[in-house]
């Protein structure tokens, strides 16, 4: 019995780093209901595009790294008049028009200035528009699209 417990503890000890590594996930649901979960590493492997920009929620500018939404969703055959519903950890939801994703390099930021973002600091994922590169994106309405603590993206059917 004692051995069994020891073995269990040993296995748990071995598994602990793996459990700890199992980080936050981003769920992407396509229009036909197919859902896929991505972790930070998955997203960075798809694409690590840098966007250096400012926005209303940070001081000065920062470099955000992560895949372009258009790259992430390219298998889903995104059309300009599609709508993306994005949901945050606190269940806040809003809609991003797909044409904005196709027109601009909108990314799912995984890193901010090369660092992972904690939940306390608007992480783990943050929708970032390249606002500094496009004057028209300075409009206040685009602030609403910068969803932080992003947890889910759904292409509305």
């Amino acid at each position: 019995m004692k051995q069994v417990i020891q073995a269990c503890v040993f296995i748990l000890t071995l598994a602990a780093p793996a459990l700890a590594l199992a980080g936050p996930q981003l769920t992407v649901t396509t229009a036909d209901g197919e859902a896929r979960a991505y972790e930070r590493q998955d997203l960075l492997e798809i694409e690590a595009h840098d966007v250096t920009t400012d926005n209303d929620y940070i001081d000065g500018t920062a470099t955000f790294t992560g895949p372009r939404l258009s790259t992430l969703l390219q298998d889903a055959g995104l059309k300009p008049d599609d709508q993306l519903q994005v949901t945050a950890l606190n269940d806040y939801r809003t809609i991003i028009p797909a044409h904005e994703v196709l027109d601009y390099d909108v990314i799912i930021a995984v890193l901010m200035d090369g660092e992972e973002m904690s939940v306390r600091d608007k992480g783990p994922f943050w929708v970032i528009y390249p606002m500094s590169d496009h004057a028209e994106l300075q409009e206040p309405s685009f602030n609403d699209r910068l969803i932080w603590q992003l947890s889910e993206i759904q292409i509305l059917p």
């Binding site: 929620y57 939940v119 306390r120 603590q149």
Partner: peptide
């Protein structure tokens, strides 16, 4: 802990203000 973190982030946003 997750709820605690979210509360923390919301508190940070409130302190930062607009």
């Amino acid at each position: 802990v997750f709820r605690f973190d979210i509360l923390w982030s919301r508190h940070a946003v409130a302190v930062e203000g607009q």
